[in-house]
Design a protein around this nucleic acid. Structure first.
Length: 670
DNA sequence: AATTATAACATTTTT
DNA sequence: TGTTATAATT
């Protein structure tokens, strides 16, 4: 995006508007982040608002980081530091930090990741007579939370037997979390909402603190986030939300595009501004995007345009299979890179689901094209990283049973299943945590001498280290844990080969770096407990921030691409069953798939290429594929279909094919 | 109790 | 396809 062009009239209006809630309907590439950052600057400099009274909320850590960086270039650094710019979840966490005790949580609470939650649910369902689908249960609970429905409500409104059982399990799950002194991700929104709803003095504090609230990607808010927003706002505080209903791609996670419509009802004085001028893409790309998205139903009409000229045709590549597709894309990239003499960082390959990255990676490696994969198994999901974090969690929250179970025998302490079973039963009877039960006398009578000693040694060590952790620097504690557990040695022993071990040790070292760095960043009052919750929230981190100078092709899912732009984009796997995904073929879900394609298209500045395959291997079997219906919905005057072989069928295709060939020849011959 | 072998299962998107 | 849960070994 251009760095400092004057704002266009709509943008200027949105920045200057004050005195009533504002909804900015910002199409892709219309400069919405600029509007938010400029508005913050404007509130401070023109309106005299104190930076500490302004909060901007994003959905991803990446977006928050980016916004911080951009606002940092606009305003004085002491103002910038006072601003609150965070994700919804991090904001929720700061509400909880002040008042967790009011909801029955204790100091040092933990945040459980999805895996911990699933393990807990599995345990709860195993005690249950009925056979239940675990992922269905998890999905239901998350939905209840996102819709602000307590276990009680869920139980009374359950429509059928299965729902009633799930609601019952939801209640147990919630009780268990409280016993663990732990929250899941959804709780980071739900519980702050409860705080504001139940305690007038909490509400007053936050409504007095936040005078203006700005929300980015507003179309992604779910019902719970919406109620958090309203509670924070109270009456009289300023609100600016920026969103694009055509870019809702998280409805499956409870996002409610209708929340945009809800605003007009709940805030009668709402002002609506549309940003339709696009500063990113060629008009051919925009017209293609517009043409596709008109197949969806709309609350507000919107048509993107730009003054960047018509641009090149969009291409559609027909391929035999995924490997062939990857090969074609890779050689395509090579050609373009050779022709343009630009950076690989300008290129991106987008796809519907993560597993599509495999053949693409392979082809790129074969062509010696550097690439950067974002959003796969993230750093914080690595087992060794989670192990170390579990140690730190347990040190600040002894009741964190999931953390206890994770590390009690990692590295091996010869504390096995039978010991843990006795411990678990004992703790359950006494209504206490595994950690506390471990040192109780009643339990030790049930254990064999050697088991008792091993457990006692572990507990003694934990208690000693926990005592240290109240006075020592968090980085020192983490370092100490790793050394005293011989964690690195254990990694060396248990990894299959030297290389894998080195990689895992490197991850551990990197985590230590993170901890030192974060501990430095925050003020000296920051304890290990805050550090750990912070790290848990960073779950999906892209470490690209450190290595963004990398001249590498970006590989990512369409979801992960939202908010980004590239001069050339390939969208792979444009097939029925994949982009519209086979599970999402009914009306509202299908519209979301279409929006996903729309998001992909609007990432491109100059070149856009789709590809689809005739056969794709699905598990063991090969399935026949058809081109995505979305390809047929594109305005055909802007696209060129290219066949797989060197005898292209359409005249345009033959032309471009020839053009490419002669270009390459010209380049090769100098 | 730990290691290894076999089966089973999963691929939608993520804070 | 590759990982991951359970079973069967040692």
């Amino acid at each position: 995006m251009l760095d400092d062009p004057a704002l266009n009239p709509q943008q200027r209006y949105a920045v200057a508007h004050i005195g009533s809630p504002l909804l900015v309907l910002a199409g892709a590439g219309s400069g919405k982040t600029r509007v938010i950052t400029q508005k913050i600057a404007h509130l401070i400099s023109e309106y005299g608002m104190n930076a500490r009274n302004i909060a901007a909320v994003t959905f991803t850590n990446k977006a928050a980081r980016e916004m911080k960086a951009r606002i940092g270039r606009l305003i004085d650094s002491k103002h910038a530091r006072a601003l609150t710019i965070s994700t919804f979840h991090a904001l929720g966490l700061s509400l909880l930090r002040r008042d967790y005790h009011r909801l029955g949580y204790r100091h040092g609470f933990s945040i459980l990741d999805a895996q911990d939650c699933e393990t807990l649910l599995r345990e709860l369902t195993q005690k249950f007579p009925q056979q239940l689908d675990l992922s269905d249960l998890r999905w239901r609970i998350s939905n209840w939370k996102n819709a602000v429905q307590s276990p009680d409500i869920a139980q009374t409104t359950a429509a059928d037997n299965v729902a009633a059982t799930c609601a019952q399990l939801y209640a147990r799950y919630q009780r268990q979390l409280l016993a663990y002194n732990a929250l899941d991700f959804d709780d980071l929104i739900v519980q702050p909402t409860n705080l504001l709803r139940l305690f007038p003095e909490v509400r007053e504090y936050w409504q007095n603190k936040i005078h203006h609230l700005l929300i980015d990607e507003y179309q992604d808010t779910n019902a719970c986030q919406y109620s958090l927003m309203k509670l924070l706002l109270g009456v009289g505080n300023g609100l600016t939300v920026v969103g694009d209903d055509d870019q809702t791609v998280y409805a499956w996670r409870g996002a409610r595009p209708e929340n945009i419509g809800l605003l007009t009802q709940d805030f009668p004085r709402l002002k609506v501004i549309k940003l339709e001028q696009n500063y990113r893409s060629s008009n051919r790309i925009l017209q293609t995007a517009n043409g596709l998205i008109t197949n969806n139903s709309h609350l507000f009409d919107k048509r993107l345009w730009s003054n960047q000229g018509l641009g090149e045709h969009l291409r559609i590549l027909a391929c035999k299979n995924a490997d062939h597709e990857a090969q074609r894309i890779a050689s395509d990239i090579l050609k373009l890179h050779f022709r343009n003499q630009d950076h690989y960082g300008n290129y991106a390959i987008l796809y519907r689901s993560n597993h599509q990255s495999r053949p693409l990676e392979k082809a790129l490696r074969e062509h010696h094209i550097p690439y950067k994969l974002s959003g796969s198994t993230s750093f914080f999901e690595r087992a060794e990283v989670k192990d170390v974090l579990a140690y730190l969690r347990l040190l600040t929250n002894p009741d964190d049973d999931p953390a206890f179970l994770r590390i009690v025998n990692t590295p091996r302490r010869h504390i096995g299943a039978s010991t843990l079973e006795k411990l678990g039963n004992y703790a359950a009877r006494r209504q206490t945590s595994l950690f506390h039960a471990s040192s109780e006398f009643g339990l030790s009578k049930q254990l064999a001498e050697h088991s008792r000693l091993r457990l006692a040694r572990f507990i003694d060590w934990l208690q000693e280290t926990a005592r240290q952790s109240t006075v020592q620097h968090p980085a020192v504690i983490a370092q100490r844990v790793i050394e005293e557990t011989h964690f690195r040695e254990w990694l060396l022993e248990t990894s299959r080969n030297r290389k894998a071990a080195e990689k895992r040790i490197k991850n551990v070292n990197e985590l230590l770096n993170w901890i030192s760095r974060l501990a430095l960043q925050q003020d000296e009052s920051t304890g290990i407990d805050q550090l750990v919750t912070h790290l848990s929230l960073l779950g999906i981190i892209d470490r690209n921030s450190e290595q963004q100078s990398d001249d590498a092709v970006h590989l990512m899912t369409l979801h992960a691409a939202k908010g980004l732009e590239f001069s050339s984009v390939w969208i792979a796997g444009m097939e029925e069953g994949l982009l519209p995904h086979r599970n999402n073929l009914e009306s509202t879900l299908l519209e979301e798939e279409r929006r996903l394609a729309y998001v992909g298209i609007t990432r491109a500045q100059r070149n856009l290429t789709f590809s689809y395959v005739a056969h794709r291997s699905h598990f063991k079997e090969q399935i026949d594929c058809e081109p995505s219906r979305f390809l047929k919905e594109l305005p055909q005057e802007h696209v060129v279909w290219e066949e797989a072989t060197s005898n292209p069928t359409s005249p345009q295709a033959r032309e471009t094919g020839k053009a490419h060939l002669s270009n390459i020849k010209a380049l090769l011959t100098g």
